[in-house]
Structures are given as structure tokens and as C-alpha cells.
Amino acid sequence: MLTLENVVIRQDDFELRADFEVPRGARVSVIGPSGAGKTTLLNVIAGFFEPSAGRVLWEGRDITRKPPGERGISLLFQDNNLFPHLTVAQNVGLGIDPGLRLTPAQKAQVEAALERVGLAGMGGRKPGRLSGGQQGRAGLARILVQGKPLILLDEPFAALGPALRAEMLALVEDVASEIGATLLMVSHDPGDARRLGGLAILVAEGRAEPPVPVADLLDHPSPVLRDYLGD
């Protein structure tokens, strides 16, 4: 279970408050107008930004001051998810050992993960030679080998077309289920949230609301959400 306990995030004159719990294994979309603080919220959970007050807990343990790599979280950003100077296999391998000293068994694990996301035989390529969708798949392969219990996605497929995005979302679902991980995804598209199902957190007007079922939120939108959705 992920808990944000009276968290206050301040950045110049921006302020965001969050106080909620996310049940273990949940699929959660984070939606809201741009500039409301969706990415900032994710950064606080991931450990890139310290809250001014409050605590972040995972399974009841306080992780507020832990460095990003030790929180049991794997991430996929909007871009720069792969180091362009390393091969795809090396990029995935970093998820197992940051020093890249891999045993034969671990190398096989990387290979299997690549095969699982549909990149069999492409481990030797540099990311520059992959398409946008394939780069996303490589990122998911790394999440697979990391096997961390919490996955954070920050609009990772925003640059892809609608069909490919749906395909990638399905793959994300599969990967998360295989690991048994909790999934938090920032998206600006309500359609993505519906497709992912599960819960949704609305970030707007300085508050991150507790998660509620996606359908409830989107079918009976609050005035703020209605302004954002534009209907």
C-alpha cells in the first residue's frame, strides 16, 4: 500500500496537498489540467523532489527521505528513458545491476524480458535505431527485470499514435500483473484512464484527491474536471 500522509509540496508560489492511500496492486491514473502538479506529485513519490511537509510510506515504512534508487520504484518518463550511448540490452541490464556486471543467468533474464516485450534479437542495437514504440517496449523490459513493487509512468507514450498507445497500455498492464506491481500513470488523456480502468486521482486546484473508480470520476465529473474535459 502506498500512503501519502498530509503531504504538502511547495515550489515558489505553487502549492499541492495530498493525503490518500493507494491499495496494493491497484491500477491508478493521475489526471488533471496541465500545470496542476501531476508530474510533481510523481516526482515526490519517486524521490526526485522533497515535500515541504508530510510523509510518503510504502507498506507502512517511511520512505520520504530515501534516495530514488532505493524506494522499490521503477519509472518510465515522457522521454530519455534509455541511454542513447548504450545498447538496448545494456539499458535493460542496468535495471539488474548498475555496474552492469551480469552473470550468464542474468543475461538470459535480460534476453527473456526483451523477448517478452517483442524485442527478441534487438538487444545489440542502440536506442537510436529503434522506433518510438520499440523504445517504449525496451523501457518496459527494464521494468520487468527490475521487478519493483511500484511502477510510475509519466505520460510515457504521449508521442505515439492512438492505436500504438492502446497496444502499449495493454503491455504495461501485462507487465504490471506479471510482477504483481502497483501502477501509477500520469496521463492528459481521459481515454487512457478509461482503457487502464481501475482508479483515478484528480489533481487540480492545489489538491490531489484520493483515488476513486475511473468510471465514477469521469461519468460524474466535478465542475473543475468538467472545465478540464471541456464537455
Binding site: A46, P68, L75, F77, F83, L86, Q90, L94, P98, L100
Partner: peptide
């Protein structure tokens, strides 16, 4: 700026960060 967050998330520190991120870039 481009890869710092990713490197942090992967616990690339000290020598590993130098070897796999800074020196090649």
C-alpha cells in the same frame, strides 16, 4: 538534465555513473 533522474532511479552512483553515463556522454 537529460538523464540524471533516470540514473538516480537506477541507483547509478559513483564509478558506475561515471562509467555508464558521464564518460560516454
Amino acid at each position: 538534465a537529460d538523464f540524471g533522474r533516470l540514473a538516480d532511479a537506477l541507483s547509478l552512483r559513483g564509478w558506475a555513473r561515471l562509467r555508464w553515463l558521464i564518460l560516454p556522454r
